[in-house]
């Protein structure tokens, strides 16, 4: 059984159809990348999974149980944490408070939460010295790290990451993806939306390519890159023979 399964899921924003009959699956322990151009429906897919958007058709199953249309507050209690595009750090709360709130999906004592937050500083050492700083004062890379730490505090079985590289310098992007690889090593499954196909496929086990809300193709990173047509049309990597 797959950890997460989407079966013919369709979703719309008002009159605009954003997803048309998308089916995909994520197995336990995998990193799966969702790729495609802006507007292809990648973020919409994540929003449908985490409950921010109610699918108009189709089934979403998590650990075999249907979750489509479930409220986000319940979805996260099942063990799906969604780190949305743009990090969405609470600007008026401190770094530590942001991290602590990540555990709002489960019961734990204040002391226990404090210990877990301290553990986060081991994965994200930069955040330790910033723990008293307000969210909005952080740089983009720091905010991304904080958003990841906050997502991990939910102790998710599945982590949904939307564009973690957005607006970050290459060096920082590498750091972020190193952390993502490490998160998987610790047993968390990751479904990753990325525009930067190269970096996404460098950590992913499999990738799905979307176009206007439909699945175009899927495969291992090698397969996707070896398919010249796919690469040219969807992965933004036009250059085939770099001089």
């Amino acid at each position: 059984m797959k950890l997460l399964e989407l079966d013919a899921v369709a979703a719309a924003y008002g009159a605009v159809q954003a997803l048309q009959s998308l089916s995909l699956g994520v197995a336990k322990g995998e990193i799966v990348a969702l790729l495609g151009a802006n507007g292809a429906g990648k973020s919409t897919t994540l929003r449908a999974i985490s409950g921010l958007l109610r699918p108009t058709r189709g089934e979403i199953r998590f650990e075999g149980a249907p979750i489509a249309g479930m409220h986000p507050e319940r979805v996260v209690r099942l063990g799906i944490a969604h780190v949305p595009e743009g990090r969405r750090v609470f600007p008026g709360l401190t770094v530590r408070e942001n991290i602590l709130l990540g555990a709002s999906n489960r019961r734990a004592s204040r002391a226990q939460l404090g210990r877990e937050a301290d553990e986060m500083y081991e994965i994200f050492p930069d955040l330790l010295r910033l723990q008293g700083a307000l969210g909005w004062t952080l740089s983009g890379g720091q905010q991304q790290m904080l958003a990841l730490a906050r997502g991990l505090m939910a102790q998710p079985k599945l982590l949904l990451l939307d564009e973690p590289s957005l607006g970050l310098a290459p060096l920082i992007v590498q750091q972020v993806f190193r952390v993502i690889a490490r998160i998987r090593e610790q047993g968390t499954t990751v479904l990753l939306v990325e525009q930067n196909a190269r970096i996404a496929l460098s950590v992913a086990d499999r990738g799905y390519v979307l176009e206007t809300g439909r699945l175009v193709t899927e495969g291992s990173p090698g397969e996707l890159w070896d398919n010249e047509e796919v690469r040219a049309a969807y992965l933004g990597g036009k250059v085939t023979k770099a001089a």
């Binding site: 290459p170 590498q174 993806f177 190193r178 690889a181 930067n196 196909a197 190269r198 970096i199 496929l201 460098s202 950590v203 990173p221 090698g222 890159w225 933004g236 990597g237 036009k238 250059v239 770099a242 001089a243």
Partner: peptide, 21 residues
């Protein structure tokens, strides 16, 4: 431009190597 090494590095990307970064 599309052959410019800095552009390839920053944006276009090359065929990925599979040793994770």
């Amino acid at each position: 431009v599309l052959r410019h090494p800095e552009v390839i590095a920053a944006y276009l990307g090359e065929v990925p190597s599979h040793e994770a970064a």
